[in-house]
Nucleic acid binder design. Structure first.
Lengths: 231, 231
DNA sequence: AGCTCATATTAGTATAGACTAACGTTGTGT
DNA sequence: ACACAACGTTAGTCTATACTAATATGAGCT
């Protein structure tokens, strides 16, 4: 048995589909045709067509009218893309002065073009980092990724101490707003208030001691690790 | 008149064709179908087809059965790609430890994916350099490029490092002989000896480290760019 | 259970870009 | 001047990937 299987090069489109399917089926479920279509801004029949090809390539399992899940091979390929994306984002922000909220598009294009060698050189230059600028874990070169259980700020209870880990949107306007508010990955906060009926959540920023009020829609976008709970 | 014309995005293939045509028609002549095909490793009919499209896009002028030349717009696009390529090569060698001889392929893929912003950030980080690691001039962001002066191998001095640029003959026998000797455009050599009274020139091929002895008549046919001179 | 609507799939088409095989053109050599 | 070799172009095909329009499926409501 060969030490490492040389997997065939995948097209840009295929790589994008695999990343999308990874994101949508990460919590164990199926990625549906229309969710994939929405995420990639494609028409559903285009997705049906690609699903057939990916399935023949052994990258996904397709249950008709249900959705798809990645095979081991597909998952490997998806994690490789995610590693590329996150290493690129971190490299560009650390080394070339990009802001964490406008680096996404650049990484989105580069991730399909860079060699594995370049990614490993960048990762080495960064000291083999574990998290990208958004706080997302970076898969290792061997395809392992840290599993973290995250709760949204909207679900947290008053008294919870949280570490902000992921901002679950790509929208530049929202990302910029969060940055202005100091709500960026890595920040630690304590939940001090929650208004009833899906009302806003108030948090205290540990670093500055200042308060922030976050409406439910935005609170749902903030994934946090529970770091403690006030007795 | 608009401050800057927003040129439409070009495909990867189109960008490669424009770069090839720039190289082949740089000295003012026409780039022929088969030269383009050879450079891009494509079949000639594929080139004919693309030539038609490029011509309709206004990027080249096509004289049937003669060849093509870049329009002003095509030249701008080609120089943009060359700037990208050379800035990338320099950045990767200076900052990420690539060798000058294996950086080419990486840059070849990245040049199609990076944004103008990233190129300018890299160029700024390098101090707005004028030459890439191979000694080739880097076009400015506004599309100006230093004209390189070519010398024949017969004029070069012992110690000169040269890049073979053009073989100034049509004669198939001579062309075949040069090819057999590995003396083809793009090859880098160092002049190690010259016999007196218009005697032969000895060069060392950088790639293989082997020597070639070239008589004066043939040496005059080899146009080279001076890439360095031994102190 | 049956109807209906949201969702998925199939059918058919388009485009970019490549290929091979067949056909034109041109210029060189006798 | 003409024949032929070398080169260029046209014709026709293929693949990947997208689209729209039409059809099939399945899940929830009555």
């Amino acid at each position: 048995m060969p030490a490492s299987i040389q997997e065939p090069a995948l097209s840009r489109s295929v790589e994008d589909y695999l990343k999308a399917i990874f994101r949508l089926s990460n919590q164990g479920g199926f990625a549906t045709t229309s969710d994939i279509a929405a995420l990639l801004a494609l028409a559903p029949p285009s997705v049906s067509g690609m699903v057939k090809r990916l399935s023949e390539m052994g990258l996904i399992e397709h249950v008709p009218y249900r959705g798809v899940q990645l095979t081991a091979q597909g998952r490997r390929a998806a994690l490789r893309m995610i590693r590329r994306h996150r290493v690129l984002e971190l490299y560009l922000t650390r080394t070339l002065g990009y802001d964490w909220d406008n680096v996404h598009n650049e990484a989105e294009r580069l991730e399909h073009a860079v060699s594995d060698e370049l990614i490993e050189r960048m990762a080495a230059a960064l000291g083999d980092p574990q998290y990208d600028p958004h706080g997302d874990p970076i898969p290792t070169a061997t395809g392992d990724i840290e599993e973290t259980e995250l709760v949204s700020l909207a679900e947290a209870k008053v008294g919870d101490a949280l570490e902000l880990r992921q901002v679950m949107t790509q929208d530049p306007a929202r990302l910029r707003y969060f940055a202005e508010q100091g709500l960026v990955p890595g920040v630690r906060v304590v939940v001090t208030d929650r208004q009833p009926f899906n009302g806003p959540t108030t948090v205290l920023l540990n670093a500055s001691g200042t308060a922030r009020i976050v409406g439910q829609e935005l609170a749902r976008l903030l994934s946090c690790r529970l770091a403690g709970r006030e007795g």
